[in-house]
Design a protein around this nucleic acid. Sequence first.
DNA 1: GGACGACATGATATCTTATAACGTGCCGAC
DNA 2: GTCGGCACGTTATAAGATATCATGTCGTCC
Lengths: 163, 163
Amino acid sequence: MTAPRAEIARAEVMCRERGVRLTDQRRRVLEILCAAGRPVGAYEIMDAMREGPRVVAPPTVYRALEFLLEQGLIHKIESLHAFVGCDHPEHPHSSEFLICLECGDVAELKDDAVERSLASVTRESGFLPRRRVVEVMGICARCARKEECARKEEADRVRGLVD
Amino acid sequence: MTAPRAEIARAEVMCRERGVRLTDQRRRVLEILCAAGRPVGAYEIMDAMREGPRVVAPPTVYRALEFLLEQGLIHKIESLHAFVGCDHPEHPHSSEFLICLECGDVAELKDDAVERSLASVTRESGFLPRRRVVEVMGICARCARKEECARKEEADRVRGLVD
DNA sequence: GGACGACATGATATCTTATAACGTGCCGAC
DNA sequence: GTCGGCACGTTATAAGATATCATGTCGTCC
Ligand SMILES: [Zn+2]
Ligand SMILES: [Zn+2]
Ligand SMILES: [Zn+2]
Ligand SMILES: [Zn+2]
């Protein structure tokens, strides 16, 4: 929830270099996504924008999202119908996510092993990839540890009762 | 569009073995998916079911889909909001798809290279995977060939005009 | 400076996808 | 027989996304 100054500044520069306009609406959406640091749905973004001066309608949000996606500044997470700011938008890349079912945390993979293995599989079959969606739902390391502790405590408690 | 007798028979056996019920509604949905041989949306399935004796409402379709997903008889393609019958449901597996943007054809990968590289990446980070979504959008081999031919013909035509 | 065109936004309506909530009927266990 | 679990019916509504047309904004060209 830190102010996403750095991300915005970076985006400004990238857009200027490319000759595209990071307008108020687009910047606002990017700010909301970066500040959240988690997947946010389009309608939630819309609500967040309402807090400002004016009311916005769905197309406004979706248009801003479309632009940010094109520029590689954000990613869409298909399995959540939600969007996240990109960690490292400097170079265009396909995104891969680890999504925690417990705490909702989302981590963007930077490793390209998956990308390479996908590339080799598709090349073999003559398929020309354009966009990749790789999303793994599961339990993140932190939640796994927490659950492990809880299990232990429970076991201890039961042992205590039996004694 | 072949009659999906084999798939249905196989599903019947699997359900019996597991002690779960492949009811009329569930079988009907599976038939529609297998017969289509392409991704089909829930509401399209609903329309297909209407052709039969009775009217069905969305929850009926979604409940059947939920059951079939649980039993591994079908997969959901997140990026299309659609469902497909599974090629090889005998052993539970996570699904990986190549989706053609041109003709809409969907191929389920059987190769497990992607699965393995994903597994190693997630293991390293202490993440416990539950469900994987791997969907690659692009141009299938057949459409790529077709486009290649079209490009050649166009080039020939232009050469002809210049001459 | 004024006309024009490209692009961005506003506003309204509608469409698609998915689920909540509650009731009914079937069937086997006891 | 009745009880409980499960599948299904029915109605309503939530949630996500897009189509369409009007309006505004801004730089360019004359
Ligand atoms: Zn990224
Ligand atoms: Zn977690
Ligand atoms: Zn499968
Ligand atoms: Zn194709």
